[in-house]
């Protein structure tokens, strides 16, 4: 207990040293940084300008645009593309009673919860399986295969799973001895297949996060637990997982953000179908705004989605407790 406290203190001191934010040094570092710019006070603004302009126009711009368009009845085509008017919160109240929006919320909830649980559990399992007792070359090989599934472009992952699960695909071939009937699993169990494809393409991220997290655990504590007679299960559940708490939380938030806003994989696999079986919120937004051309209404749905994601992202920022 005492030694781990010490280690934490040392760690803190190290962090503070590199960032110059310890109370005793903060004022000092601040003054030193200010002194650096005495001769060219405008240079800092000049250097910040390109990035700031890009962020303002292309990230802040669409956010403002979203709020503006969401309160109009603007359409993509037809007379309402030019002559549209302010409708206040009408689009939002319409969302509340739209069965398709309710469906999208439900599909998204099922998809996000099962994908996040799948990705996290599988990532954690893989990190544990490869932690010790496996030949380093084997670890490299297994990691490479799982990481390839993650780094290939999403459109390629979509193509792979379309072939794998689609009509007369490899999945149907493998399952044919045990399961007759419809050979297109994208029709038979679309949401399940889309979820499995998402887990396939995302697990590597969790695996890498947990591998790093496990690597960072202080070895003395684990050895002490073994000496005290804790078995493997007790060590994992009582000691390691509680110590990985913040790693697990970070992983959950980042995976939730990725999956919540995923568009490409589902769009290439099913385009939200059959019917509305895999229409998650991002696909619903796209359909309303582009395919059904009700721009104002679709944007209102997008604003709801952005608000949900912004909330999750804010949790992430607060969790990291940044010291800048």
């Amino acid at each position: 207990m005492i030694s781990s406290h010490k280690a934490a203190e040392q760690h803190k001191a190290g962090v503070n040293h590199s960032r110059g934010s310890a109370p005793s040094r903060a004022g000092n570092a601040q003054a030193r940084r200010t002194a650096l710019w005495r001769r060219l006070p405008w240079a800092s603004l000049l250097l910040l300008l390109p990035a700031t302009a890009l962020l303002l126009i292309f990230l802040f711009g669409p956010i403002v645009q979203a709020i503006r368009v969401a309160t109009t009845n603007e359409a993509l085509t037809g007379p309402q593309a030019i002559n549209y008017g302010f409708v206040g919160l009408a689009n939002f109240s319409q969302l509340l009673t739209d069965p398709d929006f309710h469906n999208a919320l439900g599909v998204s909830a099922k998809y996000v919860i099962s994908s996040v649980i799948g990705v996290t559990a599988l990532g954690l399992l893989l990190a544990y399986l490869m932690r010790r007792g496996v030949h380093p070359l084997l670890v490299k090989l297994v990691s490479a295969i799982i990481i390839i599934a993650w780094v290939i472009p999403e459109i390629v992952a979509g193509f792979i799973w379309l072939a794998f699960g689609g009509s007369n695909g490899t999945l149907a071939m493998i399952l044919s001895p045990v399961s007759a009937g419809e050979s297109d699993w994208l029709i038979r169990a679309p949401l399940v297949l889309v979820t499995v494809a998402t887990i396939w393409a995302t697990t590597a991220f969790s695996m890498l996060v947990f591998t790093a997290g496990l690597h960072g655990l202080p070895e003395e504590v684990l050895e002490a637990a073994t000496v005290d007679g804790a078995n493997l299960w007790q060590r994992i559940v009582r000691i390691e997982l509680p110590m990985l708490k913040s790693t697990i939380a970070t992983n959950l938030i980042l995976v939730t953000l990725t999956v919540l806003t995923d568009f490409t994989l589902i769009y290439t696999l099913t385009a939200g179908g059959p019917g509305t079986a895999t229409t998650t919120l991002p696909l619903y937004v796209f359909q309303e705004a582009i395919s059904f051309t009700v721009l104002g209404y679709g944007t209102a749905a997008a604003v709801v989605l952005v608000a949900v994601a912004a909330f999750v992202s804010m949790l992430y920022v607060l969790l990291l407790k940044i010291e800048v």
């Binding site: 711009g61 669409p62 721009l295 994601a309 992202s313």
Partner: peptide
Amino acid sequence: YLFIILFATGLPVQLLMIPAYTL
């Protein structure tokens, strides 16, 4: 500035595609 930057790293941009399209 840094707070907004970190916040934006967590906010996937494909969410903003429809407003970006109208912009």
